[in-house]
Every structure is written in C-alpha cells, then in structure tokens.
Nucleic acid binder design. Structure first.
Length: 401
DNA sequence: AAGCATGATTAAAC
DNA sequence: GTTTAATCATGCTT
C-alpha cells in the first residue's frame, strides 16, 4: 500500500521491486524502508553508467532484504501468519481460491497420470528375479542360473568349486542390492512424509486437496523409483558381468588327466567295432576318470569323428592300446574267475570282442585292428545298429567277426 | 608365434 | 534324447 508509484524518470529499478512485492507480508515494510536511500539523487547521470550504478544498488537492496528476512525472528513471522489466518476475510477468500483451483488446476493434469508400467523396469525386475537377486531368499535362483549355465552336463568337482564362488559373489550382489533398495525405500517414505506434512501445513493457508497430495506422493514415488531403476540396472549389469566371467571360466578347456585319457582310450580301442558306450558304461567311465558323463560323451564323439577322419594317424595309438588290452585279456585267460577290474582300469568287460582284432593286429604290423573296426559292422561307414542301444558289453555279439 | 591337440559347443539329422 | 560334423577356443609342443 505504501508502494510508491514507479518512478518514470531515469532507469528505474526493474526487478528488485518485483521480488519485494512477491510474497512475504513483511516485504512491504521492508521496501518502504529501503526506498528512501535509493532515491538519492545522482546528479542527473543518465545512460549506461548510471544504469550500472542503479542495478548494483538494486542488487545491494535485494541482498539487504534477504539479510533482513534472515534476521527476522521466527516468532515475528509466525505472528504475522497468525494475523493473516485470523483475518475475517480469510475463510471467504479461501473458499474462492478453492473454487478457482477446482476449476482450473486439477482437471488438466489428471490425464497424464496413470503411468504406463515401465517395460524396462519390468524387464529388469524379471531378470533380477530369474537370477535370484530379487525375490525370496533361497539358493534356488543362483542354482538355477548355474545349472542353466552348465547346460550340458553335471558338475565336476572343478565346476562345483566355481559354482560356490559364483554363488557367493551373487549373494554379495544380492546383499548390496537389498541394502540399497531398503535405503531408497526408507528415504522415499521419509521424504514422502515430509512433503505430506508440508502440504498439510500449507493447506491451512492455501487449498490443497487430498487428491493433490496423492498426486504429489505419486510424483515422489516415481522419482524415487527412477533411482531404483538405476540401482536395478547396475545390479543387472553386475550379475551379467559375473555370469559372463563364470561362463568364461567354465569354457576354459583343461585337458583330462593322463590316466583319464588312458581309460577312455582303452575303452575306445577295445570297442572299436562299436565305440558307443551305453549310459551305464559312460557313467562308469566318468567315475573312473573323474569327469562328467557328458564329458565322456564329448570325448567319444570327438574321438570317433577324429579317428574316422584320420585312421592312419591313430594307428600307433590303436596298436598300443590293443597291446595293452591283449595283455589284460591274456591275464584273464590265466585266471578267468577273477574279474580284472584292477590295473589299467578296464571295466570288467574283459574279453571284449575287439580283442580278437587286437590280437590279429599285434602279430602283423598291418593295422587289421583299425580296419576291423571299419570293415565289419562299420560304424565309420554309417551307424550300423542304433547307437543308443549299443551296449558296452559288445563281448558276445560283435566278436563273431 | 605357429601349428597341432583336444575339450566344448553348435546345428542338423535321426 | 543321441549322434555326426564343423567349428571354436584353449592348451601344449615345437
């Protein structure tokens, strides 16, 4: 009310007043107090220099005002607020405000409300759930992930070691994830309460509908959930890195022990006519070699194909194993009642058909052995009988050749 | 480093 | 499910 008419002459203070007017009830008095020195004559200095001086003074004024606000006691402010609240016109004004707000503010923003469930977030959630990071605390997720990773086979002692390593790392990630998530949730609820209190407080002086509060809470939650999304994202990344490292480690090839190779070769060359170990035979071999059944399968698969591709190359090897097996067979002949499970570790399937071949080959330098495997039933030419049915005990049947 | 050996993976056929 | 055949990736030897 005391606001003086804006001076038309010279470069009147542009922004400063605006600031003063907008808001605080005490501002008017402040303004009026400070107007006096501002009106100081400048000796008619117009133009830019004058403008600079003016604006500098303006800033000075503003600063001064701010300082004064700071200095103003809380009690004083509260008292002013109280006076305002008790004003007899207040209820009327308030209701008008409510009406206006009802008409304008709320209606426009409501449409954009219902948020589309963020597909990215859903994806992240699903992945974390699948990896066993989110969801109920169990070994299940990690185990599932690992078993998925080691799709083709059981657990060797080696990979189980990696497995536990993987599990511990995963649970570490899980721990971090959950602590962070909890922190966020706590912060979110704290902030929400704070804002709600604030709004409630404000609702005494301005119309704040519950719906508006709700909307505000929604906004806060969305903001916080975007932070959560980031957390989830980085957790996912960590899991992926861990997993890829785990897989890499698993992929690292390590040669089987000499002994294991020997056992496998022995079986292979002593069943050369039909080198398809049955499931049981594979298990037995796996046990003997301390490898998995699928590794045995792999080995036989590789061996068959490589042998077939280059029989000549394997001749020497064939000879050696044939000799060995023959030796075992001779021993067996000596004491047919003792199943020779010891020694080179044949599978008590002694006297296998292929020993014949072996024998014939030892005498002559000619690789009748290998050819034998090929010429007769010939797995090399194409599968003879169903390999699935192939029994490790080919003894009786295929030695007739 | 090059080349071979070898275990694992893959696609296709069965 | 299994197998073959091709291929990859690594280990080992030279």
């Amino acid at each position: 009310m005391l606001q003086q008419p804006q001076p038309l002459t010279g470069s009147g203070p542009p922004g400063g007043r605006g600031l003063g007017v907008s808001g605080h009830p005490g501002m008017h008095s402040l303004n009026s107090v400070h107007h006096a020195p501002q009106r100081r004559s400048d000796g008619g200095l117009e133009g830019t220099e004058n403008g600079h001086a003016e604006s500098r003074r303006d800033i000075g004024d503003i600063l001064q005002q701010i300082m004064t606000i700071t200095d103003q006691s809380l009690d004083e402010a509260q008292a002013k607020k109280h006076t305002l609240n008790c004003h007899r016109m207040k209820p009327a004004l308030f209701s008008v405000l409510c009406e206006i707000k009802e008409k304008t503010g709320l209606s426009m923003r409501n449409n954009q409300e219902e948020e589309h469930q963020d597909p990215q977030l859903v994806r992240l959630d699903n992945m974390l759930l699948a990896e066993g990071v989110a969801g109920p605390e169990k070994g299940g997720g990690a185990a599932a992930a690992v078993s998925a990773a080691t799709s083709s086979g059981g657990m060797s002692p080696d990979s189980s070691l990696e497995h536990s390593d993987y599990k511990s790392k995963l649970s570490q990630i899980r721990g971090i994830y959950h602590t962070e998530l909890e922190k966020y949730e706590q912060a979110c609820s704290e902030f929400t309460t704070h804002v709600m209190n604030l709004l409630r407080e404000q609702s005494r002086t301005r119309p704040v509908s519950p719906r508006e509060i709700e909307r505000m809470v929604g906004i806060i939650h969305r903001k916080f959930s975007s932070i959560q999304t980031q957390l989830k994202q980085s957790t996912c990344e960590a899991v992926m890195i861990l997993r890829s490292r785990f897989l890499d480690a698993r992929r690292k090839r390590r040669n089987f022990s000499k002994q294991a190779t020997e056992v496998l070769n022995e079986y292979f060359y002593s069943h050369l006519s039909n080198p398809y170990p049955s499931e049981e035979a594979k298990e037995e071999l796996a046990k003997q070699c301390s490898i998995t059944v699928s590794q045995v399968s792999n080995w036989f698969g590789n061996k068959r194909i490589r042998y077939k591709k280059n029989i000549g190359k394997f001749q020497e090897e064939a000879n050696i194993y044939a000799m060995k097996t023959a030796l075992v067979a001779t021993q067996n002949d000596d004491s047919p009642h003792t199943p020779n499970s010891t020694g080179s570790g044949s599978f008590s399937l002694s006297g296998s058909a292929d020993l014949f071949l072996a024998g014939s080959q030892i005498n002559g330098e000619q690789p009748g052995y290998a050819i034998g495997g090929q010429t007769n039933g010939s797995w090399t030419g194409g599968r003879n009988t169903s390999p699935h049915a192939a029994s490790p005990r080919s003894d009786g049947s295929d030695n007739s050749e």
